[in-house]
Write a protein that binds this DNA or RNA. Structure first.
Length: 486
DNA sequence: AAATGGTTCAACCGCAATCAG
DNA sequence: CCTGATTGCGGTTGAACCATT
């Protein structure tokens, strides 16, 4: 047995525009009693309206916390950015502009912003930039990024996460069959695509299939032998910087900011070194990191650097780097020397000149796409890696029950290494794998990239999403990406 | 001044998810 | 657990307003 009908259609309820008297009655009633049941409200308030109409009038017009009047420039940009990601999910968009109603935003979009975008040569539906509008858009987009506060960007990232996880739109990423899976729309998928264009396509390592591991990660199985190490990581990184560097030629700002560079380093390590485990985490603010590592805010502690590089430098032969000729040749031509006097930690020092204008550990200018100099932003990345003679290991048990391998020498790292606030952050894991669990001396790499929007880093990808849409079709056709999707 | 066309936006409609009896 | 009310949401409508002819 259900409830009584909401509105008795036999009653002649008024429709159409509300009169000031009706408004006054509604406001007075709600201010005194709250709205309670909308169905019961009209009768109690003396209104010949249906409850639905009352609710709409209140939520869209009479509510006291509604900001009316012209939209600010910041609100304009916010709506445009959110719409690029959320589409016509007006209520979700309105959630990021608390004083605006979804109805108002929807109307504003349809009457103003849509036309403005079209005038700039941007398709208001797909947010693709036409060639005619490219110049206009390029001069406009940076403005968007720099004018949004960091908090806003973070909120945007959350909105994006929400959108990615729920959207079943036409966005097609890594899988022909997974168009509507959350994984296909997860930021890690974007990362992978960026990586493929930023690293893989540039340096031509022979990576194998890419498959979607879960909604929150992407897995790469590298079928080719793991390149043998050629040099100490710091040297290699230095060389590879000159090869890869910040990818200002790529539309995705992800590769142009410090965090991207840090991840690029990660992939360099992954490619060049024969390390078995690798971890990149957006670092906590200096204060927090100081607590967890006992190190200074910007620079990695020497003990951590020791963890990173011990066992690598002294096991490497500079002879072969199949798949990475540029780096190998660079290392050779530079007369690689194990005792070149470059301490590992120096490489990561914000004052180091070893790696050029690398801002890995240095706060960026506020004008950069990666945001402000706020110490809490993602400008800080830290690395930790470990080499164990070419055998498999994964990460030590993480607080909170992440997967682990007891045999991991990483488990010898003090518990304080794993800061409680960090294990939920985006992280990147690389380790050897084998189907039977026995990992060969070479071959079989597994790259798992679980990432979430807890990191401000991904908010910096936000702005690039529109442009990335234009890259989706080529990615979709990439056999290396598509052919091995289950 | 009237007609016409375009714009704005409050309000409505219908659908789907959620909730309550 | 089922049924139907309630709520929330996005799409659409249409009256009011404005600009142009």
């Amino acid at each position: 047995m259900g409830r009584a009908p909401c509105c008795d259609e036999k009653l002649s309820l008024k429709k159409g525009p509300w009169t000031p008297d009706e408004d006054q009655k509604l406001v007075a009633y709600i201010q005194e009693h709250g709205h309670g049941s909308w169905r019961a409200l009209p009768e109690k308030a003396g209104l010949a309206r249906c409850g639905k109409s009352c609710r709409l009038r209140w939520t869209n017009y009479l509510r006291p916390d509604i900001k009316r009047g012209r939209f600010s420039h910041e609100e304009d940009q916010m709506i445009i950015q959110l719409h690029a990601i959320l589409g016509n999910r007006w209520s979700a968009i309105a959630g990021h502009l608390p004083q605006r109603t979804d109805n108002e935003i929807k109307n504003y979009w349809n009457t103003h912003l849509k036309k403005r975008l079209a005038h700039r040569g941007i398709d208001p539906v797909s947010h693709k930039t036409s060639s005619a509008g490219l110049a206009l858009a390029s001069s406009w987009r940076p403005l968007v990024s720099t004018q949004l506060t960091h908090t806003t960007q973070w909120d945007c990232a959350l909105a994006e996460a929400e959108a990615r996880l729920s959207k079943t739109s036409s966005i097609k990423l890594l899988s022909k069959e997974s168009d509507t899976t959350p994984a296909a729309t997860h930021p890690s998928a974007y990362f992978m695509r960026s990586w493929k264009t930023g690293v893989e396509d540039t340096l031509k390592p022979q990576f194998g299939p890419v498959k979607l591991e879960s909604f929150s990660s992407v897995r790469i199985n590298c079928s080719t032998p793991i390149p043998k190490p050629v040099s100490r990581p710091s040297k290699i990184l230095q060389d590879w910087d000159s090869v890869l560097g910040p990818r200002h030629d790529l539309p995705n700002p992800f590769w142009q900011n410090s965090g991207a560079l840090a991840l690029t380093h990660a992939l360099k390590q992954f490619s060049v070194g024969r390390m078995n485990s690798f971890r990149v985490e957006p670092a906590a603010p200096p204060q927090a990191r100081s607590n967890s590592f006992g190190a200074s805010g910007e620079a990695m502690s020497s003990s951590l650097a020791e963890i990173m590089f011990t066992g690598i430098d002294h096991q490497r032969s500079p002879d072969s780097t199949p798949g990475f000729p540029a780096a190998a040749e660079a290392a050779r031509s530079d007369g690689f020397d194990l005792d070149d006097g470059v301490a590992p930690e120096d490489y990561f020092s914000p004052n180091s000149t070893l790696h050029g204008p690398d801002s890995d550990l240095t706060p960026s200018d506020s004008g950069s796409p990666c945001g402000s100099a706020d110490e809490s932003t993602s400008d800080y990345f830290e690395f930790a890696l470990h080499q164990q003679h070419g055998f498999f290991h994964s990460f030590p048990p993480l607080p909170g029950g992440a997967d682990h391998q007891d045999e991991s020498p990483m488990s010898t790292i003090p518990d304080t290494f794993w800061h409680e606030d960090q294990h939920d952050s985006g992280r990147l894991q690389i380790h050897n794998v084998a189907p039977d669990g026995v990992v060969p001396e070479s071959g079989g790499l597994e790259l798992i990239i679980p990432m979430d929007f807890s990191t401000a880093e991904f908010s910096h990808q936000f702005e690039s999403l529109c442009q990335e849409v234009e890259e989706e079709e080529p990615m979709q056709q990439d056999p290396a990406v598509c052919d091995n999707i289950p």
